[in-house]
């Protein structure tokens, strides 16, 4: 009985704490359904008086939010695909394949982790400019192709795959590519989902890099579009909130749907299995 009370107490406490995260999101949703100017009245209302989808209609009809949404979807999906392709194969190679200088190269890569991303942005931009890739999709996607963190994440997980399993497949005549595809990839599923989710969220939410690289508003992703919207419609809080809902909802839904795998991926290797 005491256990039950204690459990309920912990749950109540957690519910209370989760309100701090939930309330701004819920209010964002509520404001997005309000009529123009309603949210700016004092005291600000919690719920819309006459809920309306006008803001969403205006967003998709008069601004290019629909196109921006598709741009973001394309960039985030392509970044995820690229990141998985390169990070997973590199992470596996660092964990399980024997090649000269493996440890040295990995340590060298890890040491580069301490360099903040912002430091490399200007040189990267200048390089892309030299190659004529500014204002191109390739330019936006390049930072996502391979990340040291992604390689590290996959490597740590791949270390837990028994080498004997790979050797058994080698004895059975499987090529290295076949081993990777048929034996290793299915075992890496939790980390694939985790890394995929990380990359998708990062690419979807990324503001700074697309802002630097993209000059054509046709190619703007949602965060940049939202920023320009807030500049143009500084008074239209309701419209901006509708834009924020459109930006946040897909990643929130994706995270909720995959959080079970995400947790097992991030916790992997933390305890002896």
């Amino acid at each position: 009985m005491r256990k039950l009370w204690r459990g309920s107490g912990v749950h109540l406490g957690l519910c209370f704490l989760s309100m701090f995260a939930m309330i701004p999101l819920l209010w964002m949703l509520s404001v997005s359904l309000m009529s123009p100017g309603e949210a700016s009245s004092f005291p600000p209302p919690l719920l819309p008086q006459n809920p309306t989808f006008d803001n969403y209609r205006q967003l998709f009809e008069y601004s290019s939010m629909g196109r921006n949404f598709l741009n973001s979807l394309f960039v985030a999906s392509a970044a995820t695909l690229l990141s998985l392709t390169f990070n997973v194969s590199a992470g596996y190679a660092f964990a399980k394949l024997e090649f000269k200088g493996r440890q040295l190269l990995f340590r060298w890569l890890l040491s580069a982790l301490v360099i903040p991303a912002q430091v490399s942005m200007i040189p990267l931009f200048l390089m892309l400019k030299g190659m004529g890739l500014v204002n191109s999709w390739i330019g936006v996607l390049i930072p996502f192709v391979a990340s040291i963190f992604g390689i590290f994440l996959v490597r740590q997980y791949a270390l837990s795959i028994p080498t004997e399993m790979i050797e058994a497949a080698r004895i059975e005549g499987a090529s290295e590519l076949r081993i990777f595809r048929s034996v290793v990839l299915p075992l890496l599923k939790p980390i694939l989902i985790t890394l995929g989710l990380f990359t998708f969220l990062a690419a979807w939410n990324d503001f700074f890099w697309p802002l630097i690289v993209l000059t054509d508003s046709e190619k703007y992703t949602l965060p940049i579009a939202l920023a320009s919207l807030s500049r143009e419609h500084v008074q239209d809080v309701e419209l901006m909130m509708a834009g924020a809902v459109v930006t946040v909802t897909p990643v929130l839904v994706l995270f909720m749907a995959l959080q079970r795998f995400y947790m097992s991926g991030t916790l992997a290797g933390s305890v002896k299995g």
Binding site: E164, M165, A174
Partner: peptide, 28 residues
């Protein structure tokens, strides 16, 4: 290894966990 005509059974069994026994046995 694959050209030597040998088969090996490991200490840890090294079965492929995502495959059934049938799939494990038929893989080679």
């Amino acid at each position: 290894p694959s050209k030597r005509g040998i088969a090996m059974v490991f200490q840890s069994y090294a079965l492929y966990p995502h495959m059934t026994v049938y799939e494990n046995m038929s893989f080679g």
